[in-house]
């Protein structure tokens, strides 16, 4: 009886966690594109107005960011104003949870065929590099090492702390702005 009650609750909690993490990541992507030149080098080549989505199949939680030009990204929430240009899709919420709870690296998730790409594969690889750098910045080194293939050797503690603080501040600001607007 208890097991029958606990299981749906734990599944709901997992879904909620993925939803919240997408919200945080979307805002953090916007934040890191404002504070890190290396990220802007990666995203600058995307066409202006390019829409990138990460989602859980078939219609689960998602995040959408738009390239606004000069490498800057803007988090659009979960609805796109037009057809997205690139979508990285987890096959199941359980697979998204593995990656977003840092139990499985993004590259491993690809290797395990848990994610599919709808759009240009080269751009998907580029966006994966962006996600990896974001994780290296905003997560403690021990956790980030589990999330990325290789923790960047050139990322020193002062740079990491200052950038992470700026990114988290921007995440918090956008959360507050969203709350005020709604």
């Amino acid at each position: 009886m208890i097991a029958r009650v606990i299981k749906p609750v734990s599944l709901q909690a997992r879904r909620l966690y993925v939803e919240v993490m997408f919200q945080v990541m979307g805002r953090a992507l916007q934040g890191i594109s404002e504070v890190d030149e290396k990220i802007r080098e990666e995203t600058r080549v995307l066409p202006k107005g390019f829409l990138f989505e990460m989602m859980v199949m078939p219609a689960g939680p998602n995040l959408i960011v738009e390239h606004q030009g000069e490498g800057r990204l803007r988090f659009l929430g979960s609805s796109a104003p037009r057809k997205v240009d690139l979508s990285i899709q987890f096959k199941h919420i359980a697979h998204a949870f593995l990656v977003l709870s840092f139990q499985e690296k993004t590259a491993t998730s690809f290797a395990n065929d848990r994610m599919v790409v709808d759009g240009d594969l080269g751009t998907a690889i580029r966006m994966t590099r962006v996600l990896n750098r974001l994780e290296a910045f905003i997560l403690p080194k021990l956790v980030a090492s589990r999330a990325v293939k290789e923790y960047p050797a050139d990322l020193g503690l002062p740079e990491k702390l200052i950038s992470a603080a700026k990114i988290y501040l921007k995440v918090a600001t956008t959360f507050i702005e969203t709350a005020r607007a709604s």
Partner: peptide, 13 residues
């Protein structure tokens, strides 16, 4: 090469 799909599966970053 950096944007090629197969680079994802290389064991080393």
């Amino acid at each position: 090469a950096l944007d090629d799909g197969s680079i994802m599966f290389n064991p080393k970053e």
